[in-house]
Design a protein around this nucleic acid. Structure first.
Lengths: 206, 206, 206, 206
DNA sequence: AATGAATGAGGCTTCATTCAT
DNA sequence: TATGAATGAAGCCTCATTCAT
């Protein structure tokens, strides 16, 4: 069961250091982040980055996986709330609030990474469950799916990014509210396109 | 009297070729687009890119300006429609439908370009007008602003980008419908954050 | 005899404009001077530069030739002065004073240009003549040659260039005086190297 | 105790290789020298140039600093010679002889580099000391300064550069002798310009 | 396992020169 | 002849990745 020897303690710590540094760099500097700046921030040598993550894409995949796993956990926390709709709403709040939503652009450039794809599927599953519960309780319109909510999850944060001038840290809540109102049964109009398939059976990629 | 722009015919054509090639490259390859790939696609030498656009940023600014100007025109077309809400909805449709919405992230990396900023402000103004009319007609909830709609404009396209698997070209309509339902008066819940200022009086930046 | 038709008037004027602009640009901006900046300064299109001078090197050669020819004229003016040594001194003064001495670096990168080489040889000849007269008058030490003086001609200007801080426009005179004192018979010490040959019979080069 | 600089051995060697290659390239090809040609000559990859010198200017500054530091050392060696004038003369000889005098034009394009400026000031100081001693001994005319000699230091090499035809490796000695004769008290004529200030208190520049 | 030097492909930009108008 | 657009070879520099220590 113990496949890894002891001295890994240091290595594991470095891995965490690097992940944290990378998240921070990508968050602060976006595309400007580089292996060098991440290593510097983590306090390790550049070579160490590549000992832990063979490729920059792998690093990104690891971040994404971590973030998505965290989101999955948050979703599960809300699965047994008394008010299903409130639970879903709270999930969407905490998910964004903890800036846990890394720009999902990354997911696409990495979607052929198996790990990230799997963990994303898992999160998707939880969101589906949350949505199903809320629909069963009648608080959500019947013509939407968990996949819809999954896809819309980042919209509040995206919307806010296009506002010029100084950032308004909580403004995204406004757009979450607005979008959430669109998910309710009241005043729902028919949708012009059918719901998308999540497509669980993906081919592994290249 | 028009003796001057004689050899400009070719040049103007090249400029359009370049803009088109650049749009296509950025659309297809995003950050990977380069002056070289754009030139290749346009069928001109690399140096020609820089005759027309002194800087890569200038090229991007030109694309953004062109796209936003187009959107502005589309918005104006809907300003005198009989049904204001339908007009706004149609604007949002055609805007997205013509994939006219270049990823607005670019605007941020270029926001210090005066032209792009100005033309963006102009588009914002038209959207505000459209929204005001729709509100006056009672078809839109009263607690939202044109700025809100402006910020949400790209959300349908963004949402769709996160769907794994083969693309569904019109799926974005589904999310436009959903979001639009959230803008209606029926079933509106109070919003947790006040509307943002557009901040017309921006400082030019260094 | 009239090999050139009338419309050359314009062309000739442009040629002078270009030469003047090029001199000014090289003087002000040194290596930073470019075909574009020269054309701009001359008020013509870039293509026109190359109609008059097939190559940048040719332009430089033309400038050098013009400058050297001017120097030659100045030298001749002093050939019949009463006091030969004073004549030589005055020549050295006016040569430098009129900033007629373009950085001779150029000469080297162009020395295979026949025109420039010829006109330089001519100037050399005049300097030799001035020096010979001065030596005959006993005002110059006997162990130096006109070639020596020719080579030292630019030294005062070169020396001054290495002074940091704000330029002292006439400081070069100090070094001309100093060097000139070294050319006098008084206190002359034997020289460790024989005088160089000018080498009149140069091969034209590629 | 000296565990740190272990892998530096190779790096240091490369740095020297690069400096040497750069000196050679600049000497042979002047402005034509490029990062690529330097790297090729040093037998390293182009990127390695920039690991050692962040900028081309930095490389040049390093060369200049190295050369000037060497000159400074040579000057100090002569400070305690018995015959002050001979010491100064020997300094000027060895300085030029070891082709240690890189074209000082470079200094100007780099004068905002603090290191180079400082080391140049240092060399200037030593020359001043050598000249002061020689003046005190009566072997040098009284109306010149160390700054004068500093400025004239490169003149013999410059003079030689203007001789067409095959190079005469030691010809510069002839002009050093000539110039040195001008520095002696015998036959000195009054100088038309006062001595320049070195201007020790330069502002650092932006 | 960690380090940091080395690599080399690739990006942006400049500029002398050519060429169609 | 003049124009100015087009060309393409370099130039400088960055950065992910590899490798010797």
């Amino acid at each position: 069961m113990t496949t890894a020897p002891a001295p890994r303690a240091d290595a594991a710590r470095n891995r965490e250091l690097l992940l944290a540094a990378a998240e921070a760099e990508f968050a602060e500097r976006g595309d400007e982040a580089s292996a060098a700046s991440i290593a510097r921030r983590a306090g390790v040598a550049k070579g160490t980055v590549f000992r832990h993550f063979a490729t920059m894409d792998e690093l990104i995949a690891a971040i994404v996986a971590k973030r998505l796993a965290h989101l999955t956990a948050l979703a599960r926390e809300q699965l047994d709330s008394d008010d299903p709709a409130a639970g879903l709403y709270r999930f969407l709040i905490v998910a964004a609030d903890q800036r846990t939503q890394l720009d999902l652009r990354f997911l696409m450039s990495v979607s052929n990474d198996c790990t990230a794809a799997c963990v994303r599927d898992e999160l998707h599953g939880e969101v589906v469950r949350l949505v199903d519960r809320a629909q069963a309780s009648g608080a959500l319109r019947a013509d939407i799916t968990g996949t819809d909510v999954f896809l819309l999850m980042c919209s509040p944060l995206h919307a806010v990014e296009n506002l010029p001038g100084p950032p308004r840290p909580n403004l995204w809540r406004r757009y979450l509210d607005l979008i959430f109102d669109g998910l309710r049964p009241q005043g729902a109009h028919p949708l012009s396109e059918p719901a998308p398939d999540w497509g669980t059976d993906r081919t592994p990629g290249s």
